[in-house]
Nucleic acid binder design. Structure first.
Length: 223
DNA sequence: GCAAAGATTTGCT
DNA sequence: GCAAATCTTTGCC
């Protein structure tokens, strides 16, 4: 028995929503074939005033979902190769979202692995011919990899993640699972943004989780 | 209308 | 550690 992630927890402050999403589940499909990932790393993008956000130039064809109601998906295509998944936050009209940077595979690992390899073959990345095995921990350890493992594309842009019947949806952390230990730091890949946004500690992650986008140090893994 | 850079990942120098 | 792969969007001509 699982519970849909409450939309009201996304309608309010984006930084609080980002922290609350650590430990929640992203679910693709239903039944025994469902792929489930536990969110372990996210980043918050807050309004048009955030000079690191895609919303900084106002609404465009690409970022329209950011201006929509909370609890829906904003999926964008970047570098001509990868998709990235965001959860839209705050009331409709305020362009805020939380980027899902990494998830820990919980179920459907073989389907995730197959999806990763399918994307690789599709993109025809040079040198990928040998197709080295992907460790379980690394199946969705990065924003582009989350979408590859869960088969997320622009077709999912605008989908309602809080709808219990959606093919792509959010589930709350199980009540019997302890609250994760969350730490913060600067966001990644936004060197183009001026201060103070470049240095705002709006990246949230679970301490020492092996599925983080940047592999944690042995010290962190050991504690 | 065209040049340039991007909320990334991978493999090779 | 660096550059390539590749397409959408921005910014200037």
């Amino acid at each position: 028995m699982t519970t849909a992630f409450p939309r009201e927890a996304l309608r309010t402050d984006t930084l609080a929503a980002a922290r609350a999403l650590i430990g929640a589940r992203i679910v693709r499909g239903s039944g025994p074939n469902a792929r489930i990932g536990r969110i372990v790393e996210v980043e918050a993008y807050v309004g048009v005033e955030d000079r690191a956000s895609h919303a900084r130039f106002g609404p465009t064809r690409r970022n329209a979902a950011m201006f929509g109601p909370p609890g829906h998906a904003y999926v964008y295509f970047v570098y001509g190769m990868y998709y990235c998944l965001n959860v839209v936050t705050e009331p409709e009209g305020r362009p805020c979202a939380v980027l899902i940077r990494a998830v820990e595979p919980i179920a459907g690992l073989e389907a995730m692995r197959a999806a990763r390899h399918a994307v690789r073959a599709e993109r025809a990345i040079s040198g990928a011919g040998r197709g080295a095995a992907i460790p379980d921990d690394r199946l969705a350890a990065g924003p582009g990899l989350v979408c590859a493992a869960l088969s997320i594309t622009r077709a999912d842009d605008g989908a309602d993640l809080c709808g219990p019947d959606s093919d792509l949806r959010l589930d709350a952390r199980p009540v019997d699972e302890p609250a994760p230990s969350v730490v913060t730091g600067p966001r990644i890949g936004i060197g183009y943004a001026p201060e103070p946004w470049r240095s705002e500690p709006w990246r949230f992650w679970e301490t020492g989780n092996p599925s983080l986008s940047k592999r944690p140090s042995p010290l962190e893994l050991g504690r």
